Simulated scan of single mutants.
Amino acid sequence: MIKEVIVVEGKSDTVAIKRAVEADTIETGGSAVPPHVIKKVKLAQEKRGVIIFTDPDFQGERIRRIVSQAVPGCKHAFITRDEGRGKRNLGVENATDEVIRKALAEVRTEIEYPTEEAIGFEDLLEAGLIAGNGASERREKLGEILGIGYANGKQILKRLNMFQVSKREFLLALEQVGGEDRS
């Protein structure tokens, strides 16, 4: 049984999670995330810890941001867009049991303050992750490799530091993306 409570978007996600692992979930019921749900998540964080596991789309990222801002210190599980692609939609409910277990085994934990070797805006610019042809695709690949999901330029910087990705880990991932070590 997974100790933490997993925050998901809806009933289909709960079914998929419980099919793959033994765990308790809290459903946000969509992207609005009402106050009573935030209250439940705060209590779960105090008692057992929380893993946010939302869909790899705009609404899923919006929910992730709302919950993590309201409840600091959450853990995060991510799947790629390909892993969540279904016939009609994109979501956790479409992921295989293996993909769900892998995502939960590779959770990332938020920190409030970056470490001394924090990655900076200049690092992203030099790596071709901000502005320019292919930046979006490079960020998507980087997010998949590091297990932090897809994000725009501003959010990728925040995630790299929030999840304590070291410069070394960043540079190794860039090599896989096809980036150059320019530091």
Rank of each mutant, 00 (worst) to 15 (best):
1 M>C: 10
1 M>R: 09
3 K>T: 10
3 K>W: 01
6 I>N: 11
7 V>S: 03
7 V>M: 14
8 V>C: 11
9 E>L: 10
9 E>D: 04
9 E>K: 12
13 D>K: 04
14 T>G: 06
15 V>F: 04
15 V>Q: 13
15 V>L: 15
18 K>N: 12
18 K>V: 13
19 R>P: 00
20 A>F: 03
23 A>V: 03
24 D>V: 06
28 T>D: 11
31 S>Y: 15
31 S>W: 02
32 A>H: 13
34 P>F: 11
35 P>H: 04
40 K>F: 01
41 V>K: 10
42 K>W: 12
42 K>H: 07
43 L>Y: 07
43 L>H: 04
44 A>M: 08
46 E>Y: 05
46 E>F: 08
46 E>N: 09
47 K>M: 12
51 I>F: 02
58 F>V: 13
61 E>F: 00
62 R>T: 12
63 I>C: 06
66 I>N: 01
66 I>G: 05
68 S>F: 10
71 V>H: 01
71 V>G: 05
72 P>M: 00
74 C>K: 06
74 C>I: 07
75 K>H: 04
77 A>S: 05
77 A>E: 01
77 A>C: 04
78 F>E: 10
79 I>C: 06
83 E>C: 00
83 E>Q: 15
84 G>A: 13
84 G>P: 01
89 N>V: 05
90 L>H: 02
91 G>L: 05
98 E>P: 00
100 I>M: 07
101 R>L: 11
102 K>G: 02
102 K>F: 05
102 K>C: 04
103 A>G: 01
110 E>M: 11
111 I>R: 14
114 P>Q: 12
115 T>C: 12
116 E>C: 03
118 A>F: 13
120 G>F: 06
121 F>E: 12
122 E>F: 07
125 L>C: 01
126 E>K: 15
127 A>E: 02
127 A>G: 08
128 G>C: 04
129 L>H: 06
130 I>Y: 05
130 I>D: 03
131 A>D: 03
133 N>G: 13
133 N>W: 04
135 A>T: 10
136 S>Q: 14
138 R>G: 01
138 R>C: 07
140 E>Y: 06
142 L>W: 05
143 G>N: 08
144 E>R: 14
145 I>C: 04
145 I>H: 10
146 L>S: 05
148 I>K: 04
148 I>N: 01
152 N>E: 04
153 G>W: 08
153 G>F: 10
154 K>P: 02
155 Q>R: 13
155 Q>V: 13
156 I>S: 00
158 K>T: 13
158 K>S: 07
161 N>D: 09
161 N>E: 03
163 F>I: 06
163 F>S: 07
165 V>N: 02
166 S>A: 06
167 K>H: 09
168 R>Y: 09
169 E>F: 05
169 E>D: 14
170 F>P: 02
171 L>E: 07
171 L>S: 05
172 L>Q: 14
173 A>H: 07
174 L>P: 01
176 Q>H: 03
177 V>C: 08
178 G>I: 02
179 G>R: 11
180 E>V: 13
181 D>Y: 14
181 D>F: 11
181 D>C: 11
182 R>I: 14
182 R>T: 15
183 S>K: 11
